[in-house]
């Protein structure tokens, strides 16, 4: 099966700045693909390379097997939900949604009917006459989504679409987006810097760092078996352990990661590893206890309902040997 989008050794350099540097990626058709990384890591540039707003300075991008090199954005059957939504301020919601059909020459009656269908899909029936300025952030986001779907794109690109929403709304929209994608079976490519968002929604996650892809995999793989220190650090709040620490925990002399939830506090007497509590952070579902041991600080997640030690107390650290994940590279 051909991939929906394929990056073959793609680079995009702006003068001396290597925004994207030799990226290879394959995005399967019908998948929900997240591009995760800090700002400036090249993920948004990758998205703009797919939509055609940037052209690669090296390599090629294939969309359903076709080289997109010479195809301008308006002739790519790929649509985007922009970070700031980019709704047309002078048009009402219905005309915004129908815009893609209007420029194709679809007559007014048919395109308005179609726009109403899509507004119903995003639960905005009856909002057609309003101007974007009269909508809330969440509503604008839905309009942007409906507008991007009107042309029935083969790939939908979403550029930090939930970034401007407050927490509660963001979580609701995450569920809705996921449900929508499963219903429409369109390939979604989703850019975010929020690891929770990427892990909870995506089938596949690509973690970006400094213009390169650090790791691609399912959320479980990226979270549980990070390939590099960067991935371990950025995805979640893992303990990244240097080789000497790994050895003290009984592993080989290599960098490793250890999830806080895979560890538990035990009495210091007779424990293989012990130290002092230096900080506590209450997280609601549990408490993160930071323990200083052997020159390193290790976080331990203590579930709610379990006794939490005072700062300064001596504790022992217990862990499952299998949870110690060795990384390929530093």
């Amino acid at each position: 099966m051909t991939a929906a989008v394929e990056f073959r050794n793609v680079s995009r350099h702006f003068g001396p700045v290597r925004a994207v540097d030799g990226v290879d990626l394959s995005i399967a058709e019908g998948s929900f693909f997240a591009m995760l990384g800090p700002s400036g890591s090249g993920k948004t540039t990758c998205l703009r390379l797919i939509s055609g707003f940037e052209s690669p300075t090296g390599g090629e991008i294939r969309i359903f097997g076709e080289n997109s090199g010479s195809v301008p954005p308006n002739r790519r059957n790929v649509n985007t939900v922009f970070q700031d939504y980019a709704l047309f301020p002078h048009m009402n919601v219905r005309d915004n949604v129908a815009y893609g059909l209007m420029v194709k020459g679809v007559d007014r009656v048919r395109r308005h009917a179609r726009a109403e269908e899509l507004l119903a899909l995003v639960k905005l029936d009856g909002y057609g006459e309003r101007k974007p300025g009269q909508l809330s952030g969440g509503q604008r986001q839905r309009v942007a989504l409906a507008r991007a779907l009107v042309n029935e794109p083969r790939v939908l690109l979403l550029d930090e679409p939930l970034g401007a929403l407050d927490l509660k709304l963001r979580e609701a929209m995450q569920d809705e987006l996921k449900a929508l994608q499963q219903r429409l079976r369109i390939t979604f490519v989703f850019v975010t810097h929020d690891q929770g968002e990427a892990l909870s929604m995506a089938d596949q996650v690509a973690v970006f760092s400094e213009g390169r892809v650090a790791q691609v995999g399912t959320p479980a793989e990226v979270y549980g078996r990070p390939r590099t220190r960067f991935v371990a650090d950025f995805v979640g709040s893992s303990n990244v352990l240097p080789p000497e620490m790994t050895q003290r925990l009984g592993g080989p002399a290599r960098w490793s990661s250890l999830r806080p939830e895979a560890m538990r506090l035990i009495p210091p007497e007779g424990a293989a590893l012990s130290g002092q509590v230096t900080a506590l952070r209450y997280l609601g579902a549990g408490t993160r206890v930071v323990v200083r041991t052997g020159g390193a600080e290790i976080g331990v997640l203590v579930p709610a309902g379990t006794a939490v030690p005072e700062p300064g107390a001596s504790v022992g650290l217990g862990f499952d040997r299998a949870a110690l994940h060795l990384m390929d590279e530093a």
Partner: peptide, 25 residues
């Protein structure tokens, strides 16, 4: 907003359509 011009192209409008329907208004 620069992105409304991009949004127009993204939705299939060529440069002239974008000028007429989005930039000029």
């Amino acid at each position: 907003s620069g992105s409304i011009v991009e949004a127009s192209a993204d939705l299939g409008a060529n440069g002239f359509q974008t000028f007429w329907h989005v930039i000029l208004p």
